Simulated scan of single mutants.
Amino acid sequence: MSVLEAEAAPDEREGRSAVPRPGYGLAAAGFALPVALAIFWEWLVAAGIANGRLMPPPSVVGRTLWDLAASGELLAHAGATLWRVAAGFGLGALAGTVLGAVTGALPIARSLLDPTLQALRAIPSIAWVPLFILWLGIFEASKVALIAVGVFFPVYLGVAAAIQGIDRKIVEVGRVFRLSRLAMARRVLLPAILPSWITALRSGLGLGFMFVVAAEIMGASEGLGYLLVDGQQLGRPDTIIAAIISFAVLGKLADGLLVAITRPFLAWQDTARDKL
């Protein structure tokens, strides 16, 4: 809880809690467009207007997904991918948070570390693949390391920028209340950077799912990325699209889980979103 929240007027807090939240109907409307496009493409293929060989209709993709799920392959591939993303996300987010806090808070560390890290950030993800294979082998360690690199940079940038962008007036309010250094960090500084940090974590998680594709394509015997390569080699676009859909669903679920876990830490915010 921040100092400013502690001083907020009771009527303002009551008014914020009374704001109605969007219903489930509005959230479900987000599925209307992809469902409508899927139905339209199914109709085009069924009517013979479009060729469904390279872009199979939803019925064929759905049947492929069902067969993969019934055989247990989909669960095995999804589980392998999720484990790699979780391990890489944990390592990358931890390293990004620590180094971002250090460079954001200490000018000397920023001068020493930030130029090198910014240069490393410009390196394409695929360029790390041969080096990680040489260092760590072709097994799980190299894949997790590649995902951690993808997660690291958005978290690092988000934390460092949030610390450097803390409003000086907020710090002065804490000093007026004679807060100790620990209390200043807990009640003023941490709430000030928390929204940016959580946004950086979400960006890092999204990049983690992007990097896991490169990690699994470079040599894996299971995972959704392996399923993509397998579909390409066998000439089965339905398998490729099924893997892409699985990536989209897993990424959305993982992002929703992260949002749900972090939402209580942002309950003190009184943002414009609450008024819409």
Rank of each mutant, 00 (worst) to 15 (best):
E5T: 09
E5R: 03
A8S: 08
P10V: 02
V19W: 06
P20E: 12
A28M: 07
A29M: 13
F31H: 11
I39S: 14
F40L: 15
L44I: 03
V45F: 01
V45Q: 02
A46R: 13
A46I: 08
I49Q: 13
A50L: 09
V61R: 00
V61C: 01
A69P: 10
A80R: 09
A80C: 14
T81G: 05
T81D: 12
A86P: 08
G92Q: 13
L94A: 15
L94Q: 15
L94M: 15
G96Y: 07
L99H: 12
L106P: 05
P107H: 13
R110C: 10
R110E: 15
P115W: 12
Q118H: 14
A119W: 15
L120V: 08
L120T: 03
R121F: 14
P124M: 02
L131C: 04
W135S: 01
A141P: 01
L146Y: 03
L146K: 00
V151W: 00
F152D: 01
F153G: 02
Y156I: 01
V159I: 13
A160M: 11
D167Q: 09
I170D: 11
I170W: 10
E172Y: 10
V176N: 09
A183C: 05
M184Q: 05
M184L: 11
M184F: 00
R187H: 06
L189M: 10
L190F: 11
L190G: 00
A200D: 02
L201G: 07
F209L: 05
M210I: 13
V213S: 02
M218I: 07
E222L: 12
G223N: 02
L224G: 00
V229Q: 09
D230T: 15
D238I: 02
I240Y: 01
I245T: 06
S246R: 02
L253F: 14
R263L: 09
L266C: 05
A267H: 06
W268S: 04
A272L: 13
D274T: 12
